[in-house]
């Protein structure tokens, strides 16, 4: 099975849940709240249309991508594992930002990425780890008066 087929299959499955469970919930919610009425097109019309389109096109995509060779898919080297690793790091970074603040979370994130992907010069890496988060934080704070999260530890 090609990657395109997997994508088509997964999105078709997800959109069935969307159409069968989530959209009707919006409809009943709207009834329950009684927040006004509408003429021919209501809050569920667009979700139904959009969901229906996803369903149709994922089925067509599933049906046609078998014949089409894999040349449409980027024949790129590289492990999915490494891709997942960076996504995990991103997620940890975003959550960590709330706990320990933007500054330290960014430094840890950079250090982890540099370590994981085997940076060649640790001197350059160390400079970046310290300066980039500090500069970003200071620019936003001083110039734009937008505070990034300080983290719960310092509040």
């Amino acid at each position: 099975m090609t990657a395109t087929r997997i994508l088509a299959f997964l999105s078709a499955a997800a959109i069935l849940v969307f159409l069968a469970v989530m959209v009707p919930a919006v409809g009943s919610n709207q009834m329950a709240m009684g927040s006004g009425d509408f003429y021919s097109v209501g809050p569920t019309a667009l979700p139904n249309l959009a969901g229906g389109m996803v369903l149709v096109f994922s089925i067509i995509m599933f049906a046609t991508s078998g014949r089409e060779a894999r040349d449409d898919e980027a024949a790129t080297p590289g492990g999915i594992g490494l891709a997942l690793a960076i996504v995990g790091l991103f997620a940890a970074y975003s959550l960590g930002m709330l706990a320990i603040g933007f500054l330290f979370a960014s430094m840890l994130f950079l250090a982890a990425v540099f370590w994981l992907y085997r940076v060649s010069s640790w001197i350059a890496a160390a400079v970046l780890i310290v300066t980039v988060p500090l500069v970003v934080d200071q620019i936003l704070r001083r110039l734009f008066l937008v505070p990034l999260p300080d983290g719960l530890l310092f509040n």
Binding site: R141, L145, F154
Partner: peptide
């Protein structure tokens, strides 16, 4: 601008 540092805050 007069933003207190975390350390100051803790103090």
């Amino acid at each position: 601008m007069n933003f207190a540092k975390p350390a100051l805050l803790a103090l």
